[in-house]
Design a protein around this nucleic acid. Structure first.
Length: 679
DNA sequence: AGTCGAGTTCTTTTT
DNA sequence: GAACTCGACT
């Protein structure tokens, strides 16, 4: 929370608006001028036209967006005529929450969410005009990967046997990158994967078959949610005009992270340039997913009359931390972006610390020791965050934390909705909602004994044929004697249980709310079957129960299922975790937009951060920006740690300190020398 | 032919 | 830990 200003004061000038007239139940007076600094105020009170806000880290970016929304309301725009687009779910939630807190208008009155979420919503409403069934299921990354893998195996069962061939994930990345950057697969292979040039024809074919199979099964992957949204805007002029008039103003957060596909969508949505984009090119950290910060550099060209505002006053961090952050950017190549410098407002405190540990375990011990000290200084666990480049960099730390029973919340790693048992259950719901989605069917059917992909496919195939011939539903056909005969003997009982549960779910899927449907599924076959599958079935069953809790938020099955896939960043926080006093462990990507009094950045060694792959692929600038994002999360204290030895993967490797440390001037930080052992 | 279990290797980042 | 390989078992 940015707390640079006092809480709202009484009326002041004409812009202080008591919206009680417009929203009688909902709106406390907002004193725009008092609540914002000059830079921010200028931006939020700009005319209703194209606005680009270049916002440095910690400068009150979200605050500016939030107040812009409130200001638009004072100009007579209604909440449902405002579209708020963000990049991650976390940012979307934060944004909507703050809008609600400021304006008193419930967040669901606005159109707000991630690009994918809004795309999904628009396609549910208008998709049929471009041949998309309203019932479409959404594939998450691993679903999409298995589908592609299936396609490739169908083409050539031996393809993956040849270890020179890329894994399905890599092929999926190529396809996805092409789609997100609106370029051809030929081009992507040529420029980014020249060593697969000989496979180009194969990849093109895999892509075609993959797109066809998705269509056949009535499923969309993440990229489809954007691509079809764009094609709606490009191919159906009546819907295009409808959408263009529906939204009187569009606000885009983290604009620097938009890719070509997204920026095209935005441009098509705003022919009258009623748009505010907020971003910071120095924080662009998604180029690997096609983000193109050229979008922010050329925004004004594409939206004539753009007013550009810079907000650079930083309320978050101490001058020492900002000095270090500014130094990071100084090492960017000269033409890297808009010049900027974060201007401190806080009093000087201590310099950031740098500590070199003998290995990752030693690093973990140092951090724990230091945290103990911080607690005695009056900090809480929840004031402290530990940031890292990749999940596995925190493994030793996790072990130590567990050993010492220190409460921590990890916002990465295995996510709640990605756990096997959750996905198993959700697959049943998805199949019931859309029986063409055989991918979902295979997922849970293959759990039965002696039932692998081949057997499951054959049985489903038989079921589809018989249901066509006898004019019955697929699920009726699957319980028929002729099919049961083909089910492996040991799986027969479970097969029937499973089919009966699916029938039960299907019958009620349009009659009962999602929470009841979910509960039917849990009480049916899977709830019991689970016990034979996992030794810790008890805790997994608890997870399923909390899925019911999640379902109560929805009154429509499609929205519920869509959110399960799109919200996969909703981590395994058993709701309670949020309020408790926990240490935070998170990747830097997921920490974007957050701030903490104390931040540790760990694993600052060559080949960890910058990562090995970025060094190989020459993506150093993105790593540097990522480091900048990490540093600017800290408010009071910043610790940078370096493990000299890594035992991860094979023989121990000697690691030198990250170049991002080495290129700083020595007076930017103070070096701590650590005792050899903490025992 | 297809499934299953044991053993091995390698970990980016998110919708 | 998960994703993959390989060989044995039905």
């Amino acid at each position: 929370m940015i707390t640079n200003q006092p809480s709202p004061r009484p009326l002041h000038e004409s812009l202080v608006t008591d919206l009680n007239t417009a929203f009688p139940d909902a709106f406390p007076p907002i004193n725009f001028k008092e609540d914002l600094n000059e830079e921010q105020f200028a931006a939020i009170s700009a005319p209703i036209g194209p606005v680009l806000v270049l916002a440095g880290a910690g400068s009150g970016k979200t605050r500016t967006l939030t107040y812009r929304v409130a200001w638009l309301l004072t100009q007579g725009i209604c909440p449902w005529e405002i579209l708020l687009l963000t990049f991650t779910n976390k940012a979307a939630n934060e944004m909507l929450l703050r809008v609600e807190n400021l304006t008193g208008i419930p967040h669901y009155k606005f159109w707000g969410g991630t690009f994918h979420h809004i795309g999904q919503k628009i396609l549910r409403i208008h998709g049929e005009s471009i041949g998309i069934n309203k019932n479409f299921n959404i594939l998450d990354a691993s679903d999409a990967d298995s589908l592609l893998s299936e396609v490739i195996r169908n083409f050539d069962a031996q393809f993956f046997r040849n270890t020179d061939n890329p894994k399905s994930r890599v092929i999926g990345e190529i396809i996805s990158y092409a789609r997100n950057t609106c370029s051809s697969i030929e081009q992507v292979v040529k420029e980014k994967y020249p060593y697969f040039a000989h496979l180009l024809q194969n990849i093109l074919l895999f892509n075609k078959n993959y797109q066809d199979l998705k269509k056949k099964r009535g499923v969309l992957d993440y990229d489809d949610l954007l691509e079809h949204w764009l094609s709606l805007l490009e191919n159906n002029s009546s819907i295009k005009e409808h959408l263009q008039h529906q939204f009187k103003y569009i606000l885009v957060d983290e604009y620097q992270d938009t890719n070509t596909l997204q920026s095209k969508i935005i441009d098509r949505m705003t022919p009258y340039h009623k748009i505010m984009a907020v971003g910071d090119d120095a924080q662009c950290i998604y180029t690997w997913r096609g983000a193109n910060f050229e979008n922010i550099m050329t925004f004004a060209d594409r939206h004539p009359g753009t007013l550009i505002f810079k907000i650079e006053t930083n309320y978050r961090s101490t001058p020492e931390i900002l000095d270090l952050a500014n130094q990071v950017l100084e090492h960017q190549p000269a033409n890297a972006g808009y010049r900027k410098e974060l201007k401190p407002t806080r009093r000087p405190k201590q310099k950031p610390y740098f500590a070199s540990a003998s290995d990752t375990k030693h690093q973990a011990q140092f951090i724990l020791k230091r945290i103990k000290g911080l607690l005695s200084e009056g900090y809480n666990y929840s004031d402290i965050a530990i940031l890292y480049r990749a999940h596995f960099h925190a493994m030793d730390l996790q072990m130590e934390l567990t050993r010492l029973a220190i409460p921590y919340q990890i916002t990465s790693g295995i996510r709640f909705f990605e756990q096997a048992h959750i996905k198993d259950l959700v697959a049943q719901l998805k199949f019931a909602a859309n029986p063409a989605d055989s991918t979902s069917f295979f997922r849970f059917a293959c759990l039965l004994p002696k039932m692998g992909p081949k057997t499951a496919e054959k049985l489903l195939q038989l079921g589809v044929e018989s249901s066509k011939k006898n004019q019955t539903s697929l699920l009726k056909a699957l319980e028929h004697e002729s099919i049961i005969k083909k089910v492996p003997a040991t799986a027969k009982d479970d097969w029937l249980d499973m089919i009966y549960t699916l029938q039960d779910v299907t019958e009620n899927i349009h009659k009962l709310p999602p929470k009841d449907i979910t509960s039917i599924a849990i009480e049916g076959w899977y709830g019991t079957f689970l016990r034979s599958l996992y030794p810790n079935w008890q805790s997994r069953q608890d997870d399923l129960q909390s899925l019911i809790g999640f379902a109560t938020r929805f009154d429509n099955m499609q929205e519920f299922l869509a959110q399960l896939v799109l919200l996969n960043s909703e981590t395994s926080d058993r709701a309670a975790d949020l309020n408790e006093d926990n240490l935070r462990l998170t990747t830097i990507h997921q920490a974007k937009g957050l701030e903490f009094p104390v931040v540790f950045i760990i694993g600052l060694a060559e080949s960890l951060f910058p990562s090995k792959r970025s060094l190989e692929e020459d993506n150093l600038e993105e790593e540097r920006r990522l480091f900048y994002v990490a540093v600017t999360r800290a408010k009071d204290e910043l610790y940078l740690t370096h493990p000299r030895l890594s035992f991860q993967g094979g023989p121990p490797a000697l690691l030198s300190p990250s170049r991002f440390i080495q290129e700083l001037s020595k007076d930017a930080y103070q070096t701590l020398s650590l005792p050899n052992s903490y025992y």
